[in-house]
Design a protein around this nucleic acid. Structure first.
Lengths: 206, 206
DNA sequence: TTATCAATGTTATTTATTTAACGTTAAGAT
DNA sequence: ATCTTAACGTTAAATAAATAACATTGATAA
């Protein structure tokens, strides 16, 4: 399978969000220049990204917003919706849950896990928290391939290992730990100290 | 000034964290191979990154952990520590605050802002929450150049504008809004939907 | 003292990504 | 009907980033 650059995928997701917003405001079509300006890229970048998904616009009318949004969706999204697991239901985990719960249109299911016995069995947003030992049992039922890790750093690698055994193929790692995973597992680093220090650095350069 | 690639800066920050951990466990020196393995990059990558900061190792002993950590620090960090402002003290803002408060060694000050009158004047981690209208007044006193935006999307652009007027040069944008900023302001997009959809996509590819 | 050797620093090559160039298309005007 | 034009799709060039190649270092041991 042809490997599509991560940056292209990221931009497509951003385009889709913008198109969604514009459609909400009643817009029906737009040109690459406008999309580029809103997204913060160049028009050529936009056009060559759209080439990847094979979407055809018209020189006269540009892109049909509704159509393009749908096209990006069918390229990016899991056809039957994505199920995710959130491991670690602390403050950050709860933030994530609420965010996903309300803002992710393509989420078909969310499972919550923790080790704290005081939390097990309680509910957040109507979703019950399971003990982490039940991960394999629960994940084997649904077709959940994505997990979010929001546990203390010392438990991160262990949790990652269990998730992978349970069939997880994509991880959002909110811990500062560098996870060791098989190469068919996709890890996105979500630690917030790195970007904070990075922004601090570049803010000073300007 | 020579522009240093963002990826290099990110990796340097990651190296520094790893070195700090190793030092904590009593290690004194290491080779590029080991650092690369832990970080998940190639040894050449590590060496050429370290070239950027001009750090010299020894073919026989590799890199002195203590020295290298300090060298990266003096390259990356603000000499007198960095002050940051967090705008929007909801669940996510509070998570961020706690995280920064406990985990960021180089933070010299944190200011909190919100619009909710119920929050103004109350404290989190002993830090008082100010009204957003006081941003310019308060930021003009300290030398705060970095801000974290964790407000509802509809207020994001307005907040960004005010921050920039108040002299902010770097922004961590936790909203899904594409901010319009002058080009001397560095923005790091922290929206979590994009990476979630991205991981979902690549998890399906494998 | 000198030869060995493993790991470094640096330059060159390759690969990936972005930007530019240019031919193509189709609506609207002449 | 044909010309103009602005934006598209695609190929080519330029830039940026990662990798490979190789010369350099300096501690160790013969």
């Amino acid at each position: 399978m042809l490997k599509i650059p991560e940056k292209t995928i990221q931009r497509l997701i951003i385009y889709r969000k913008i198109l969604n917003d514009l459609r909400y405001f009643g817009e029906t079509n737009l040109f690459s220049t406008k999309l580029a300006k809103i997204a913060g890229y160049s028009p050529v970048q936009v056009r060559s990204d759209l080439m990847v998904i094979g979407y055809q616009g018209s020189p006269a009318r540009g892109y049909d917003i509704d159509n393009l949004e749908t096209s990006i969706g069918s390229f990016i999204d899991a056809p039957k919706g994505e199920g995710i697991a959130i491991v670690g239901v602390g403050k950050l985990g709860k933030s994530m849950l609420e965010y996903c719960y309300w803002k992710c249109p393509n989420l078909s299911s969310i499972e919550l896990f923790d080790v704290d016995s005081k939390l097990i069995g309680t509910e957040v947003e109507g979703i019950k928290i399971h003990h982490i030992d039940d991960i394999e049992m629960i994940l084997s039922q649904g077709n959940i391939r994505v997990a979010i890790i929001t546990v203390p750093p010392e438990n991160a690698q262990d949790v990652a290992g269990r998730l992978i055994l349970a069939g997880i193929k994509g991880i959002l790692n909110y811990t500062p730990v560098r996870l060791k995973v098989p190469e068919d597992v996709f890890v996105e680093e979500m630690d917030m100290i790195v970007p904070l220090e990075k922004v601090s650095f570049y803010a000073r350069q300007s």
